[in-house]
Design a binder for these strands. Sequence first.
RNA 1: GGAGAGAUGGCAGAGUGGUCGAUUGCGGCGGUCUUGAAAACCGUUGUACCGCAAGGUACCGGGGGUUCGAAUCCCUCUCUCUCCGCCA
Length: 423
Amino acid sequence: MLTLAAIKENPEDIVRRLARKQFDGKEMIAKIIELDKTRRASQAELDSSLSQLKTLSSQIGILIRNGEKSKAEEAKSSVASLKEKCASLEESMKGAEKEITELLLNIPNTPCDLVPDGTSAADNLVVKEGGRIPDLCDDALPHWELARKYDLIDFELGVKITGAGFPVYKGKGARLQRALIDFFLDNAREAGYLEIQPPYVVNAASGYGTGQLPDKEGQMYHCNEDDFYLIPTAEVPVTNLYRDVILQESELPIKNTAYSACFRREAGSYGKDVRGLNRLHQFDKVEIVRIEKPENSYAALDEMIAYVQTLVDKLELPWHILRLCGGDMSFTSAITYDFEVFSAAQKRWLEVSSVSNFESYQANRLKCRYRGEDKKTRLVHTLNGSALALPRIVAALLENNQTPEGIRIPAALVPYTRFDIID
RNA sequence: GGAGAGAUGGCAGAGUGGUCGAUUGCGGCGGUCUUGAAAACCGUUGUACCGCAAGGUACCGGGGGUUCGAAUCCCUCUCUCUCCGCCA
């Protein structure tokens, strides 16, 4: 969530920035500033009343010890009204505090200056592109046909044992999955990321820490019995490793990577978007997460983008990078770059990675700080990115590399698949 | 699933109603000594909020209660550990 300090420093600027994210925060910001005044006034008075109360109480203790019973009783009665006052002041303080938090939780992050204006995906900016779009013959098959033809993925079987969006991978299809995961993790390690194996199920506190809650409550699978959530991305458990942590400056930057299965309810999706591997309820992804000093976070973001680019290049896929416009960004992000690869038979771009800087927005919820040279604690900046999500990579690999002889595997991946063609 | 024990500062571990935000040890930081280091010794060392400051307040797993006063007593929830059972 946004920091109260930032809001108080320049509320007009915050409102203006939120508007770029198609969010009207005028009233909420004004309300927060008003509540903050109430809170501070209440605390000041409460603190001094509590101080009096403490003094009186210790005096009573002394009186009782000295056997001055009547004086003690007298003092006791004078405490009563003070206590009532404290109770109401505390109520006012805590009430204001709670309301402030409630409001803050429901205000998205502000976009940074680089973010282009716009209201939808159509306004996203293509900032870079690479690779070559293959010329496929007219009878080229979409990946779901190829998956059936070579018996790589069985969507119907997934429907039988679970439901739509839970495919079953078989044979070389399954081996391709495993190879890609290994390939991505190896590359991340070589780029300096520490591999983490996190739980796939988290508690509500973790959901709030990274901002899935309360914003995306309905998008996560929930285990009622234990009040756990299935992770929609490894970002959640990995970033939450640093919840309520004060890091030493020397520990930064932190670079973590994790493979996990990801679970998303994807309520409200339909049509061609969900065909084949385009959108699943369960999918595999390797994530990279960084914890940075604020002054370094944008350099780190650039480094992450450059890193993801090496992956799509090694996989010989045609790609481009979008800088998302204000209206298309996620709730918690200050800036997001999406990588899309071209799926040549479907003739459409598919998002395979999303790299974001959250600045201090997540850190503020997580209470993840670092101690600088001056011994003061400051919020860190958090960043993460997919590196990469598997299903759409597989879709593009299958479609783009189809030949009459079979599906060719890019050279960089062959050491991992240990086969160079699917036939 | 059954039975029991426990949750205190970075860690270990005291504290069972009144100067306890908390003894002590380890670790960390600063210093003395030393050519340097180690050892020894001395000092220092939680977080957040309010306040221009002086200073004040809150926090001993979470929530509630008793009391003039709670880390300490009561209730409740959560979590952890041990033993038994079951089991990849």
